[in-house]
Simulated scan of single mutants.
Amino acid sequence: MTSPAASPDEAHTRSVVLDGVSHDFHVKGKDVRALDTIDLTIQPGEFVCLAGPSGCGKTTLLRLVAGFMNPTGGRITVGGEEVRRPGEERGVVFQQPTLFPWLSVRRNIELGPRLRGVASADRSQLADTYMQMVGLKDFAEHKPYELSGGMQQRCQIARVLANDPDIVLMDEPFGALDAITRERLQNELLDIWRATGKTILFITHSVDEAVFLGSRVMVMSPRPGQIVLDESAVLAEGEEQLAPEQIRSLPAYTELRDRVRRAIHETPQGATSS
C-alpha cells in the first residue's frame, strides 16, 4: 500500500537521504559492485543533476531512489520513511516516453489521477494545466504516434507532474533528442521547476546540460560509483532570472563546466570520494 498523500507543507519538507548506500549485481556467478557507500542528502526543492561516465551507476542510483529495487547495503529514506518500493511521492521520467499509444495526450496525462479516483472535471482541469505548461494544449486529442519525439517527452513529463509527486526522477530524458529540441526542453524544464518548486534528480551524460539545469551538480566516478564532485551550480547563486544564453555566457558557468569535465575524465576507476 502507498502512504497517504502528504499535505503541501509536508510535501515541501521531504528530503531524500542515502545513508551508506551500496549496490551489487550478481553477474555470471559473481557479485559486481555498481555503487559503493554513497552518503547523500537532497533537500526539498533542489534540482540535482548527476553526471558521470557510462556504467558508473547513475541509473542504478535513480532506480534505487525510485524504489524499483532495494540497495544491497545502506538505507534510502524520503521524508524519514525508508524506501522499499515505488511510491506516489516519487514520479519517474524515463529515457524513452512510456505512453499508452491508444490513449490521446489528454487521456495519458489524466491516467494517474483517474487511477487515484480524482473526479472527471478535476482530471480535465489538471490535464489542461499541464498541457499548457508543456506546450501541448493544441495536441490534446492526438495519439502519441502522431507526435514528435520531443512532444512525446513533454507528454511524459506532463503525465508525471499531473500526479503531483514531491520528487521527480529523470533518467536522461532528453538524451535521444536532436540538439535544438533538447535545448528547448531544457529551457521549458527550468521554467517548470521554478513554477512548481519540485525536487528533481536528473541523470545526464551531458556536462553542459548538468551545469545549465542544476542548482546542484554531482559527478560519479567509474564503477563502483561514488560521488567525487558535489557543487552548487550557477542557478543556485541567484542567476535564475537570466535568459538561457546569458547563463551559458557567465564565467562561473564556464568554470563549473570545466571542473565537472575534469572530474569525469580524471577520476580513476575505484576512486574514493572526498
Results as ranks from 00 to 15, higher is better:
His26Ile: 07
His26Ser: 14
Val27Glu: 15
Gly29Ile: 02
Gly29Tyr: 01
Lys30Ala: 15
Asp31Pro: 04
Arg33Pro: 08
Arg33Thr: 15
Ala34Phe: 13
Ala34Glu: 08
Leu35Ser: 10
Asp36Cys: 09
Thr37Lys: 03
Ile38Phe: 05
Thr41Glu: 15
Thr41His: 07
Ile42His: 07
Gln43Val: 05
Gln43Leu: 11
Glu46Gln: 15
Glu46Arg: 10
Val48Ala: 06
Cys49Leu: 10
Ala51Asn: 08
Ala51Gln: 09
Gly52Asp: 11
Gly52Gln: 13
Pro53Glu: 10
Pro53Tyr: 07
Ser54Cys: 11
Gly55Lys: 10
Gly55Tyr: 03
Gly55Gln: 12
Gly55Met: 10
Gly57Thr: 07
Lys58Pro: 03
Thr59Ser: 15
Thr59Arg: 04
Leu61Lys: 00
Leu62Asn: 01
Leu64Gly: 02
Ala66Gln: 06
Met69Pro: 03
Pro71Trp: 00
Pro71His: 06
Pro71Gly: 12
Pro71Met: 11
Thr72Trp: 11
Arg75Gly: 11
Ile76His: 12
Ile76Asp: 12
Thr77Lys: 09
Gly79Leu: 14
Gly79Asp: 13
Gly80Gln: 14
Glu81Asn: 13
Glu81Lys: 15
Glu81Arg: 15
Glu82Tyr: 06
Arg84Glu: 14
Arg84Trp: 06
Arg85Pro: 01
Pro86Gln: 05
Glu88Trp: 09
Gly91Leu: 08
Gly91Arg: 01
Val92Gln: 02
Val93Asn: 04
Gln96Phe: 13
Pro97Val: 00
Pro97Gln: 01
Thr98Ser: 14
Leu99Phe: 12
Phe100His: 04
Trp102Met: 01
Trp102His: 14
Trp102Val: 01
Trp102Phe: 10
Ser104Pro: 10
Ser104Thr: 15
Arg106His: 09
Asn108Glu: 07
Asn108Leu: 07
Ile109Lys: 02
Ile109Ala: 05
Ile109His: 04
Glu110Asp: 10
Leu111Lys: 04
Leu111Gly: 00
Pro113Trp: 10
Leu115Glu: 13
Gly117His: 08
Gly117Cys: 12
Ala119Met: 11
Ser120Leu: 07
Arg123Trp: 04
Ser124Met: 07
Gln125Met: 12
Thr129Ala: 13
Thr129Asn: 10
Tyr130Thr: 08
Met131Trp: 02
Gln132Gly: 12
Met133Asp: 00
Met133Trp: 00
Gly135Ser: 09
Gly135His: 03
Gly135Thr: 02
Gly135Lys: 04
Leu136Ser: 02
Lys137Trp: 12
Lys137Val: 15
Glu141Asp: 15
Glu141His: 11
His142Asn: 07
Lys143Ser: 07
Lys143Phe: 15
Pro144Ser: 06
Pro144Glu: 05
Tyr145Asn: 14
Tyr145Ser: 14
Leu147Val: 05
Gly149Leu: 00
Met151Trp: 05
Met151Gly: 05
Met151Lys: 05
Gln152Asp: 04
Arg154Glu: 00
Arg154Gly: 01
Ile157His: 00
Val160Thr: 14
Leu161His: 02
Asn163Glu: 13
Asp164Phe: 05
Pro165Thr: 07
Ile167Pro: 08
Ile167His: 03
Ile167Met: 12
Leu169Thr: 06
Leu169Asp: 08
